[in-house]
Design a protein around this nucleic acid. Structure first.
Lengths: 151, 151
DNA sequence: TTCCTTGCAAACACTTTGCAAGGCC
DNA sequence: GGCCTTGCAAAGTGTTTGCAAGGAA
């Protein structure tokens, strides 16, 4: 038994390999920019919008354009490596697929706390089944005021 | 005991009255357009984006502008009569506040099924409390393929 | 009569796309 | 070398805002 089996969501392959195969399958190419964006995204642990991701990417290579970040994140989303999310602020944020978790968001300071609850996930699956749906994924966000802001 | 107590979420006042008081409190005025938009929104049962709402409003008064619909929905949201939601399609949808429910969305045909689950709601409250949050509201969306599309 | 509201069009913010130059295989 | 990818700038979304004319109180 290897280490990867310990995580709740087993990741069979490294993202670089998933992306490489995805691209190879359709004649797409691996480039410096794409690798840099992928690496930057993972190093940050996801949860970035394009503006933030672009800023970090430009610390390494200041000539990368926003269009390339948009195009690359679209690629990562299509290949199943990232998920696009959007909270209410009009910007798309990306998270690492397979590390899905739900969010508790402070409406005062904007702090985001991540959590997972197996009980809820199980119930979601039941609900979907009861309505004849084959569940693919879900989003859950709880909005409230955190303890710091409540003072 | 009156009829209103039968619904799970008690609505203390009619939306028109809430809006009237909200506007009166800050010197805003009741207009033909605002009343029409409010009425159209409720008749449709919420779940509309601006484009759809505008189309319905224009069936009654073709001279109403999109800007007015945006401004009015902002008013309804601020006054607590409506909630803004956004699913992944880049457009804001509005729902009737107090009729909150969660959604099951077919990723193939776009069908939206509403549901409510007390078990999940209770668990959400516990999770928020465990993290020191005072929960105000939540969003939950389950994405999958409905039985019709699965065929 | 006083402000608030409206419709229009221009402005906006985020994202996508067309194109010519550059780069991977 | 062929074709994909890039950066740039322009075009597209959905939404917001400034302004002069119109309307509620």
């Amino acid at each position: 038994m290897n280490d990867e089996l310990r995580s709740r969501h087993v990741r069979a392959e490294k993202p670089e390999r998933i992306l490489a195969r995805y691209m190879a399958d359709r004649g797409l190419k691996s480039t410096r920019q794409r690798s840099l964006i992928l690496e930057t995204f993972f190093n940050a642990g996801g949860h970035l919008n394009v503006e933030e991701l672009l800023a970090k990417v430009r610390e390494e290579d200041s000539r990368v354009s926003a269009a390339t970040v948009y195009r690359t994140m679209k690629l990562l989303t299509e290949s199943g490596i990232a998920n696009a999310r959007n909270f209410g602020d009009g910007q798309t944020r990306f998270e690492i697929a397979g590390e899905h978790h739900d969010h508790l968001i402070c409406t005062t300071c904007g702090r985001i706390v991540e959590f997972e609850d197996e009980g809820i996930e199980a119930r979601q699956a039941e609900i979907a089944r009861a309505h004849g749906f084959t569940l693919a994924n879900h989003k859950m966000e709880l909005y409230g005021v955190c303890s710091d802001c409540a003072r």
